[in-house]
Design a protein around this nucleic acid. Structure first.
Lengths: 138, 138
DNA sequence: TCAAATTATCATATTAACATGATAATAACA
DNA sequence: TGTTATTATCATGTTAATATGATAATTTGA
């Protein structure tokens, strides 16, 4: 469903939301904690910074922080720099438009499914992902 | 959502369902009609034959036919040799099991979304895809 | 002002998906 | 029985995603 890269991005942002409220978190901290290749993660975090999902701080005591509150940050914002999960192609068969004579029953049903997926990413926030983590039994 | 390969498979099977009821259809016919590379399509059709979705006939007047009636053939059967859309990983974050303390609200919602997708492929048949093609205005 | 710690960037390697080209195996039929 | 048309298979090439390694730029603080 998601590329490796987008999944890394999600996991990294989630880590920041959980641990980054008092100080910036360094790439290598995250890479170690999440088992993601360090230089690869570095580029992903840089991308997220360019898309204003994160803020980066260089030099000593540097690292990354969330640019916004977790409840303001949708999964879509995190993922679209890598996977464009919103402008996902609607037609299962890759036909340019589904309004021609191929707009069959199944195509309509497929559009519903694709919309469900897109809506999930648009409407779910990082805060939603964290919400229950603490309250469930370990 | 689907790999290029799986999409080719779907389109080829659909073509067979529409045109293959009287005689087998050759690879090059399909490749031309659907704009799919011929040798690549050849391997895809071979795979589908090994998975008993198609039947192949060699030699003169050879080609491919559906192994079953269109209403017996699920999209899942066509796609899983290439994309395993059914045993899709449930956890968005790639965590091995979602029953641990990360089984948050959003994870549950994600599982619903993933199930919706899986169900679509399981329950939609080739016949469903064809159903309305003829009855809609061109 | 310089050393250390960090992100940013450049160059390259690896792997898998996608694709092409050529040949072998098989079946039909003149 | 041999020729032709077809699928099956083997070998190779291309491209994009993933990953690694090295260096530059920036910031902090001694």
């Amino acid at each position: 469903m998601l590329s490796q890269t987008a999944e890394y991005a999600l996991r990294a942002v989630l880590h920041l939301a959980q641990h980054g409220d008092t100080r910036p978190i360094r790439v290598n901290e995250m890479a170690d904690a999440l088992h993601i290749p360090q230089n690869y993660l570095s580029k992903i975090l840089h991308q997220l910074t360019r898309h204003r999902v994160l803020v980066s701080l260089r030099g000593k005591a540097g690292g990354f922080r969330l640019a916004d509150r977790p409840d303001e940050l949708s999964l879509s914002a995190i993922v679209t720099p890598f996977d464009r999960v919103d402008e996902r192609r609607r037609c299962l068969l890759g036909r340019p438009q589904c309004s021609d004579r191929t707009a069959c029953a199944a195509h309509t049903r497929w559009k519903d499914v694709a919309d469900t997926v897109a809506q999930f990413f648009r409407e779910t926030t990082v805060a939603d992902l964290l919400e229950r983590e603490a309250t469930l039994p370990a």
